[in-house]
Write a protein that binds this DNA or RNA. Structure first.
Lengths: 340, 340
DNA sequence: GTGAAAGCGCTAACAT
DNA sequence: ATGTTAGCGCTTTCAC
């Protein structure tokens, strides 16, 4: 309990030098099996535990990775972090967690903090506020491995893991069309965030391919939330022509849509509703909500693998990869008009 | 970009020594404003960034805390970690995250890893498998700050932050009784985990105080899950006497109960249902589910504060605190029999 | 196969 | 107010 045992203590007890102990502890091949065993036994006997700060400082490798996400309160990010940690742990990496709380300033600070902690790399998803990306450039300049996922930014010359959000929007729309819905409303955000815009563009493309021209009154760009879904639906229902299906920019908005439809006594899935993200609650609400799964776990796993691949290369940025995952359509009752 | 700037570079550029630079950088009072400014400017000019590994190694304080939770896939833990990180960040602590994945072996390994990383303390919630607690004793032996939350264990002589789960069970039951329900069923787990057992004991106590003797057939101890809720309900409904209310050991089980009741064409809240944990989905399902909130954020915050308090004391374990938070009853439609 | 010794970048007495 | 100088515990190159 007193002073912590160091490799010097082991060396002294064994009458060898610290380099021998270090070699034994690190499985360096140029050491005899006999002394290795001797060292290992003595280490256990003395209840030795490495000081990673010292070894990291000395070796220049911390075996720690930093992860920056907007907030763990968003289920998607919690899932992604779960998978990242799980995967990286297998390869003896530790994970320093930093939440930007959707603040640009915090994000910049996060990068700084992680860099000071000498992480071997950073896996990040951007805050809603982030426009400039100089702070991430600094990570690359220091030759540390950087991977950006989900909330990406075109100005960051680093590998990316994301979902094909255009396809997600296309899939959702196509599904509605296949179910016989024709007048589709879309309630989403006006913010310039790629994933949301891409979803919307996918929607437009699917309509175009089906030779349907979208109705202006049916498109609302404001916020994403239950309230936004309610308000948006109420507004759209005032139109002369009524939509026969609604797409919510995310599942929360879709829940709002469902609530507003119920209030207006409009039956679902006679009128269809679909969302994005496949939140946990989506399969529990009534009717169960069709959605597009974001593949949070797969995304986290890919991030981790990409990072591991990068650290292995001498020049991590020689070939910048872009991993685009396929969205998965989850069909549930809220759009089940024709199947029985 | 080449070699990283160190305090030696700054010292050399300014013709002073490293101690001066160190002092200036760390706001040590015994230094003239003039040189401090000089150093700070030069540091910025040279794009200096501290190496925390070095300062931690040298000072013996890492300003890093380790957090061990079963899994971030459980919303409660994601919320708790969110709050811990948010609170600790204010005080310049970084957070190393480790998931035990409900495995005892992983948990032991987590403690080892975090200790090797020289964290200043550990905040942990136990895995379902954990029976022995020697690994946590080691944390205490090393005089590092340990805080256990939610999933606690009586053998660990460390401060604890938890919910009053007995009261939670009592509150839920009392609420049902107040709403006029009299024959209450309880579907929960048979595992010996304090929080679940405490909830059940609270239930028993509330019945006893109301001078109602619980019906044996109405108590099912198996698993906690939607399926368990469905199966349990189906079984209970076979009884001659039918319950007029159900308590699910957690919200998932309660969802299963609701589904089974719907299938059996039993109206809710004529028959009442309540759960525990106040999951996100609980307010979205139909009918909205009454539940007992676990105060994840408050719990995380209290853990962080307790930790900060401990590190300030020279002997962190002189007075072992136990913070017990009050459960909060969330009344929703699933138990709203008499209010309008 | 093992030893000697120079760092890694910073802190913190102890001097001056 | 600033300089000197030992470390912190480990890795790693160069000898032997």
């Amino acid at each position: 309990m007193n002073k912590k045992t160091t490799i010097y203590d082991i060396a002294r007890a064994l009458g060898v030098t610290v380099s021998t102990v270090s070699r034994a502890l690190n499985n360096v091949p140029t050491i005899s099996e006999a002394t290795r065993k001797l060292v290992l036994d003595k280490a256990k006997e003395l209840n030795y535990s490495v000081n990673k700060l010292a070894s990291s400082l000395s070796s220049g490798k911390s075996n720690t990775i930093g992860v920056i996400v907007p907030t763990m309160q968003i289920h998607f990010f919690a899932e992604a972090v779960h998978s990242i940690e799980k995967e990286l742990k297998k390869h003896n990496y530790s994970l320093l967690l930093y939440q930007s709380n959707e603040s640009f300033e915090d994000e910049v600070n996060g990068v700084k903090t992680l860099l000071e902690a000498q992480v071997d790399g950073i896996i990040a998803s951007l805050s809603l506020e982030t426009q400039e990306t100089q702070h991430f450039q600094e990570v690359i300049n220091q030759r540390k491995c950087l991977v950006i996922f989900d909330r990406t930014h075109k100005d960051i010359p680093a590998p990316v893991v994301k979902l094909d959000d255009f396809k997600a929007g296309y899939l959702a729309t196509q599904h509605l069309l296949e179910q016989g819905y024709k007048n589709i409303a879309f309630i989403t955000t006006d913010k310039e965030i790629a994933i949301f815009q891409d979803r919307f563009h996918g929607f437009e493309a699917a309509l175009k391919d089906a030779q349907i021209s979208p109705q202006k009154d049916f498109i609302i760009r404001g916020d994403l939330s239950i309230e936004a879904g309610i308000k948006g639906t109420e507004q759209i229902l005032k139109s002369v022509i009524q939509p026969d299906a609604f797409i919510g920019g995310d599942d929360f908005t879709a829940v709002g849509i469902i609530q507003a439809l119920k209030t207006a006594n409009i039956a679902i899935p006679a009128t269809g509703v679909i969302g994005f993200a496949n939140q946990t609650f989506s399969s529990f609400i009534t009717p169960t909500l069709s959605s597009i799964d974001q593949q949070a776990n797969k995304m986290g796993e890919e991030c981790a693998k990409l990072f591991l691949k990068m650290v292995k290369q001498k020049s991590p940025y020689e070939a910048i990869e872009q991993i685009v995952l396929d969205p998965i359509l989850i069909k549930r009752k809220s759009t089940n008009r024709i199947d029985k």
